[in-house]
Amino acid sequence: MKSAENKPLLEVKNLKKYFQVGKNQILKAVDDVSLDIYKGETLGLVGESGCGKSTFGRTVIQLYEPTDGRIVYDGREINGSLPSAERHGFTRKMQMIFQDPYACLNPRMKVIDIVAEGIDAHGILSGEERTKKVLELLETVGLSEEHANRFPHEFSGGQRQRVGIARALAVNPEFVICDEPISALDVSIQAQVINLLKELQEKRGLTYLFIAHDLSMVKHISDRIGVMYLGAMVELADSESLFEAPLHPYTQALLSAIPIPDPDVEKSRSRIMLEGSLPNPVNLKEGCRFASRCPYAEQLCKEKTPEMKEVRPGHFAACHKAM
C-alpha cells in the first residue's frame, strides 16, 4: 500500500507539544516527534497511557497548538496562521474518531444532526439533499434510516461508534485520525468496527492514523507502527518487522507483556518484566527516557538522549544499543 516514491500525505517534523503544569514545571507531552504518513496507508501509534500518543493526534489535527515543529499536509504547511479559507478547506480533509462513544456525541442532538454537523459547519448541503446524504452515510456504516431521528442514549456502544464514524465521513475526508476507536467496546463488537474501518478505507482510499494501546488490533490493521514512550517516538517500522524483530528494549518488553489468548503458549513463554512504572514526566532530564527501567542501560544512556536512526531498512529505533 505504501510506496517509497510516493510523496507523504502528512509530514510531521520535530513536533513538540509542551504543557505548563505548574510554576517552572513543564510537561513535554510530545517531544520532538517526526513521522511521515503515506496516502492510503494505516499508521498505528501505540504506547502506554501518558506516552503522548493522543496528544500527538490532537496536535496534528490542530486541536492543540503545537509548541514547535512543522506539520505539512499534502505539501502545505498547516500549523501556524493559515488564512481562514484555507483552514476551512483543511478541516474538511482531516477528521477524527474519538475513543469514548458515550462522551463524543451530544446527548441532546438527534443522530441526523450529529452526523450532519460537519456538513452544516461547511455549508455543503441543505434541506433534502442533506437528509439524503446523512441516510446514505448511516447505511454505509451499517445503521438504518430509522436510526436518524433517535438520540444517542438509544444506541449501544458499538452503534454509537458507528455514528461517530458516519460523522467523520460526512465531509468526505482523506485522512482520519482514529483515537482508540475500539477500546471502549466489547470484544465481539471490536471486530465489527475494525472490519468497517478497513472496508471504508478500501472503498474511499482513506489514510488512517490509528492510535491504540491494544497491540494485537493495531498489528492487524496497520501497515506501519510507531511506538511512543514518555512523549518520544522510540521505534517505527512496518508492522511485521516490529512484531517479529523489535529493536528497542521498551518495544520488546511491551510485546512480551501482551497476554496471548492461548493457554499452552501463555503458560510456557517467558516474559521480560519491567521493573517499576513510568517515571514522572514533568521536567525530564537529558538522557534516554527509558533508561530508568531498561535492563540494558549504561552510563551513556543516562547522559545522552538517543536519536532515531535507521537500524534496518525502514526500521527506525531510538536506542544507543540497537544495532
Binding site: 494501546h213 497491540l215 511491551l254 497476554p259 516474559r271 518484566m273
Partner: peptide, 8 residues
Amino acid sequence: LDVTIQAQ
C-alpha cells in the same frame, strides 16, 4: 492498567 503493569 497498562499492559506492562497488567503483566506485573
